Simulated assay, not measured.
Amino acid sequence: MTWDGKLQFKSDKSKNRILSLNSKAKSAQSDVKVMIGIGGYGNSEHFASVVGNFEKMKVFINNIVTLLEEYNIDGVDFYWRSASEEDKWRYITFVRELRKSLTIRNREKPFLISLTIPAVISSYELAYDLEDSLKDVDFFNVFSMDYYGPWENQWGTPAGPIAPLYNTVPGKNGYCVDSTLNYYVCKTKQPSKFNIVIPFFARLWRHVKEAVKPEKEVIRNVELKDNKAVGDGYMFRWTVQDRKYKISPATWDEESKTSYIYNPVNETYLTFEDEKSINAKIEYVNSMNLGGVGLWTLNMDDDKSSVLNMVFSKELCSKKTQIYVKYHC
């Protein structure tokens, strides 16, 4: 997404990979859909100026529609990272106008629109009026992770699970998947519209010390260096193998439904999803009647697709369950 509302592939290689993926999906005997994603960490800076300007917004919408039609892509996901409360009505208007433009195409299978929305641990959720967006958006991918991370500021401590299913520390009531999903579901009364994220990467802290509380071993204090945590926030699973970090046997925290390994000698803390934590998340999706799960991201798995296989080894009960696979091209 450019400053004037135009769209372009990052590179010819990126374009070829996307079109190849789409071609394979279309030839498969299944109802798999392929969508493009706009926004995210490196491409959200122009959202406010484009959707806040009527002429630029029209250009943006026309370019989205043209791209979807030209390449026979099934829909689009938007991830306006760090949108604020003042962006709310511009975002609603933009999505509504896009839906109108897509609907008049009279396509046999309507184009899909999804939004990636934040975890409820800051004020970013105020940028969304989900009730007003329900009729225009097919589903929401909830960024239900990054509750704890080795960030380069004072928030890099304490160390804790990437995506704890339930809260385990008093005073941090919002820092879990269940709290985030309860917030969104209670606002909309439509749980099937929401997918939770299962992170495929591992997360490492260094200089990790004692537990915050003796009975809460999974949450541990971190010694900051120059006011920054030291570690690796997004470690590919094959990188974990290459660096010879052991992820088994792991310590299981029953309260948060997460696995981790703490090495008191090296003062390292490694957290990741494994079969037990993934099973707990799948059971949660089923019990809450959620739409499904999002996999963040497929290319962060190991060479044997171990995490992907764990997800598919557990039955998702609904016939309409969604598996939303994030894939970086």
Rank of each mutant, 00 (worst) to 15 (best):
G149E: 05
T66M: 08
Y128V: 04
F78K: 00
W80T: 08
P150G: 06
V293Q: 02
L112N: 03
Q241S: 14
D232L: 10
D232M: 09
A83S: 07
T271C: 15
E45M: 06
E283K: 10
R220N: 07
T297W: 12
P164T: 10
Y147M: 10
D232G: 02
P110Q: 15
V240D: 01
S259C: 06
Y71Q: 01
A48K: 14
N43E: 14
N106M: 06
D303P: 09
K109T: 10
M310C: 09
A163Y: 04
F111A: 02
N309I: 01
L68P: 01
Y79T: 11
D226M: 03
I113W: 00
F9R: 05
K56E: 07
V142E: 00
S123Y: 10
L270D: 08
R81V: 15
P199H: 05
T239I: 14
E255S: 13
Y245D: 02
G292M: 02
W151I: 14
K246Y: 05
K100S: 11
V169G: 08
S123Q: 11
V240W: 01
Y245V: 01
D12E: 13
L134A: 11
L130T: 15
Y262E: 07
I198L: 08
Y79D: 15
S23C: 07
K13N: 12
L295G: 12
I73W: 00
P264E: 08
Y184D: 06
G37L: 11
F139H: 06
N43T: 14
C186H: 14
E223V: 02
G75S: 04
Q190T: 09
E69T: 15
S49N: 07
N22Y: 00
K13L: 09
E283N: 13
T188V: 03
Y79S: 05
T268Q: 10
Q241G: 15
S44V: 01
N309W: 07
S101V: 00
D301H: 04
L295E: 13
Y269L: 13
I104D: 02
S306L: 04
M288D: 10
I73A: 01
I278T: 05
A127F: 13
K209D: 12
R107F: 00
L181V: 13
V185A: 07
V95L: 13
D253G: 05
P249E: 11
M145F: 11
N62H: 05
F60W: 05
L7D: 02
L270G: 09
K33F: 04
Y327R: 11
D74C: 02
C186Q: 15
G291V: 00
L224F: 08
T321K: 06
E45N: 07
Y71M: 00
V285H: 02
I61Y: 01
L316V: 15
W89R: 09
S82I: 03
D12T: 07
I196D: 03
K33L: 12
V197P: 07
S27T: 05
T268P: 00
M310D: 13
D178P: 00
E210V: 06
L126D: 12
N286P: 05
M57N: 10
A202R: 05
L98T: 01
E273D: 06
F312Q: 13
S192R: 12
G233K: 11
G231P: 05
V265Y: 02
W205P: 12
F60M: 13
S305C: 09
G291Q: 02
P161W: 07
A159N: 04
A250V: 06
F143E: 12
G39I: 01
E255V: 08
R99Y: 12
L181W: 00
Y175R: 04
G5Q: 03
K216H: 14
I117R: 10
Y175H: 06
I278M: 09
